[in-house]
Design a protein around this nucleic acid. Structure first.
Length: 110
DNA sequence: TGGTTGACGGTGG
DNA sequence: TCCACCGCCAACC
């Protein structure tokens, strides 16, 4: 059983900051968060940090896998699905159907 | 210092 | 549409 203690490094803190910015009713993929954190290829690393988020400030349940997969949630994948549905996101089984609609867009250049 | 793991992403069959 | 393989990055032992 590996220790779940994310290091308070720049990267981890940046990732948490990005996830914290995700508004309700919207979701972001690990790769998206990684890109916003400055590491477009660190999707796995983001998952590692999410694994030990343990912070109510960080809506880790709004972070999903690319393609609409929910990914995981401390072992209770069903809980994550319920949280997303409660926010108005349509989820079918373990897959988000209106992914292109709930996809969080951090900023758009005018 | 090096090797392994993991809440991933993308492509191919 | 679903399953499998490879590649990338950070944390843990």
């Amino acid at each position: 059983m590996r220790q779940i203690a994310p290091k308070d490094t720049e990267f981890s803190r940046r990732v948490l900051s990005v996830v914290r910015r995700i508004p309700p009713g919207r979701v972001a993929a690990y790769g998206e968060v990684a890109t916003l954190a400055g590491r477009p290829r660190a999707a796995r690393a983001v998952g590692n940090i999410m694994r030990g988020c343990g912070r109510p400030d960080v809506p880790c349940h709004r972070v999903i896998a690319a393609g609409g997969g929910l990914g995981g949630y401390g072992g209770s994948e069903m809980l994550k699905r319920a949280l997303l549905v409660a926010e108005g996101i349509i989820v079918s089984g373990s897959r988000i159907r209106d992914l292109g609609r709930v996809r969080w867009q951090p900023r758009r250049k005018p």
